[in-house]
């Protein structure tokens, strides 16, 4: 109950105060340079990693990146730089109506 209130409050504040969403909301920020690089901020860990697919845990669901010859160039607790040929980025929302997962 309190979580939901907090969340909507955050939405409201970012909406009204013109603050970048990733600052307050725990959403990832992706920066892509062509198909070559993908820079992910605010991730929550690696779920799966192979040459063709990377699945990252987010605060709210999962991020699935697909492509070829993936190399994780650099990784920090909440930052990641992926190199390779990126074909597809997909969000998988595990959020249920009932509340945030984890």
């Amino acid at each position: 109950m309190f979580d939901r209130f907090k969340k909507s409050a955050k939405y409201w504040i970012t909406g009204k105060m013109n603050i970048p969403e990733d600052v307050l909301l725990e959403v990832p920020r992706l920066t892509m340079i062509g198909q070559l690089h993908l820079h992910v901020e605010n991730h929550r860990g690696i779920l799966h990693f192979s040459k063709d697919q990377v699945r990252l845990k987010l605060s709210n669901g999962e991020l699935i990146v697909e492509g070829k010859q993936f190399v994780i160039k650099n990784i920090l607790p909440d930052e990641l730089l992926l190199e390779g040929r990126i074909d597809e980025i997909r969000y998988v929302n595990s959020e249920s109506r009932g509340g945030a997962h984890e």
């Binding site: 040459k51 993936f70 190399v71 650099n74 990784i75 920090l76 607790p77």
Partner: peptide
Amino acid sequence: GVMLKNIIR
């Protein structure tokens, strides 16, 4: 807090 680089599967 261990820095990892160039991870290849």
